[in-house]
Each structure stands twice: as structure tokens, then as C-alpha cells.
């Protein structure tokens, strides 16, 4: 009896992971459809992310356990999922050799500069906002 209840709970958990995966795909599909219908510059998965976040907030905020677990798992796999696209580096040996110096310098300089500027502006402004909030409370 206990065993069969545990087993049925197991299938239920399995089912709800499948359902959660379907929810993610559905959100991406809706995002893809909106992208095509409205010719928005944002791609389907990004619109799907925004749409799913909005839907969760309308329903009270917290995602159910299966959706949270499925999402966490997919996000942990994220570094793996970039390997097929990343191996594309080996598809253009000629072009990469021809522009090697400007390519490498631009990648390094621009990536580090973009990180530095974004992080500094964010820290500077949010610190200022915190200080202002604090002085308002004290006043």
C-alpha cells in the first residue's frame, strides 16, 4: 500500500516535470508567435521568458516545485548547451586567420570594457540610491 502510494507519487513527480517542460516550450512557442506576428526585435525565447515571468506574477509569484526544479536543471545544463554552436569556431578557419589580430584585440578589449562600464555604473548608481533612501529614512 505504502509502496504503491510512493510509486504513484513517483509517476506524478515525473509527470509534473514533463508538464513543466511543456510549459517552458509553450512559453517559447507563444514568444516565437508574438515575435513573428508583431515583428519585434526580441527573439522567441526572450519573449517567452518575459511572458512566463508575467504569467507567474499574475498567478501570485511563486513557480510550482516542478517548474522550479525543471528550470534549475536546464540552467545547470546551460554551459553544455552552448557546445554545438561554439564548435562553429572550426567552420571558418580562413576568415579567422585573415583577421586574427583585430578579432582577438576587439574581443578582449570590448568584452572587458563592456563588463567594467556596466558593473561600475550599476554599483555607483545603486549605492547612491541606497544612500539617498537611508538619509530620507533618517530625516
Amino acid at each position: 500500500m505504502v509502496a504503491s502510494r510512493a510509486a504513484s507519487r513517483g509517476t506524478l513527480a515525473g509527470m509534473s516535470i514533463l508538464r513543466a517542460f511543456a510549459v517552458l516550450l509553450l512559453a517559447q512557442f507563444v514568444g516565437e508567435a508574438v515575435h513573428r506576428l508583431l515583428h519585434l526585435p526580441l527573439p522567441g525565447p526572450v519573449l517567452g521568458m518575459a511572458g512566463l515571468a508575467a504569467w507567474l506574477l499574475l498567478r501570485g509569484g511563486a513557480p510550482d516545485a516542478a517548474l522550479a526544479e525543471t528550470s534549475d536543471t536546464l540552467l545547470r545544463w546551460l554551459p553544455l548547451l552552448f557546445v554545438p554552436a561554439g564548435a562553429g569556431v572550426f567552420a571558418y578557419p580562413g576568415l579567422l586567420r585573415a583577421g586574427f589580430v583585430p578579432i582577438v584585440v576587439a574581443l578582449v578589449v570590448s568584452t572587458l570594457l563592456t563588463f567594467a562600464v556596466t558593473a561600475w555604473v550599476m554599483q555607483l548608481l545603486s549605492r547612491r540610491a541606497t544612500v539617498r533612501a537611508r538619509t530620507e529614512v533618517e530625516a
Partner: peptide, 14 residues
């Protein structure tokens, strides 16, 4: 799977 993984960023966002 990159597609649904991008959608999954909605959860840390919320």
C-alpha cells in the same frame, strides 16, 4: 534545449 533554457530564466527573474 537552449530555447527552453532561456525561457527558464523567468524563474530566477520572478
Amino acid at each position: 534545449l537552449l530555447g527552453p533554457a532561456t525561457v527558464a530564466l523567468a524563474i530566477p527573474l520572478v
